[in-house]
Amino acid sequence: MILTDEEGKRLFAARGVAVAGEGALLGRISIRLDRDRRCHALVVERDGKEMSLSIDPFTGLLAFVLRRAAKHLSVPEEARASFEALVRVLYVLALSDALRVEIDPVLARADGAIAVGGVAMEFDRIARFRHPEWAEYGERLPGTEAEQAFMRLGAVAAEPDPHGRIVAVVSGAGLMMTVLDMLTAMKATVRCVVDMQGLPLQGVEVMRSIFENAGRMSPKITLIGGRFQAPVADRFAEAVIAANKLAPLTGRVVTWIAGNRAPEAQAMFAAAGFEPHDDMRAALAAVAKDR
């Protein structure tokens, strides 16, 4: 959830930080999640030179980290206390599920206060269950209209080519990426690729919504695919076929189903007039031949 500059500034002002005003330019500071080191990182940048300082999750923000950051930014001695207070506010926000808090520019005022020139802030949308106060920001979803429509259902979509002819709806993030990679390598034009996440077995109405979203993109070919570990491929096929009666897909529908009860699913798809495959490569080749 991304906040606007104004919303960000309000958050800082509410915590006693000076906002805007005139002052000497110090640079930029941010706190981000360092996923590979499993910690937060305080990143300070002045004159194009960036320094990243890890914050140990067991100790929190220690004084030496603040001193190194202040030195890198050449914070005037009289502004040190104000600067440290500002960084502590950043860290408090990071501990309140902010993924990234960035202040650009940071200004040193003549009265010794450090002021916030601009704020960019993003909160972890997943953590909204413990932040009822975020309701005031509303539901802001990233991406295109089509991507947002799938996201509202609980799926994840990416729309690489608005002129593409193919929509691929698959079960699994890895398959979402693999299908896009392989179709792209075959020079096929993919309008949208969707990972259904946990939706495949949530019934006909959910599947109908997925098909309605896909149908709005008027695909020439729709690929539906997945490998099922639990014995449910036939249940999935049943939901797909029922949904297609309620919200019919235009163009060819190619399916690739593998795993538990896949033969039953393929027979159902064949009877419904789809083009079933039991091999992903064959299904993608069938999709790409009509690119």
Partner: peptide, 9 residues
């Protein structure tokens, strides 16, 4: 082949 700035599942 992912488009930039998109979460891929």
């Amino acid at each position: 082949s992912s488009p930039p700035d998109r979460q891929m599942g």
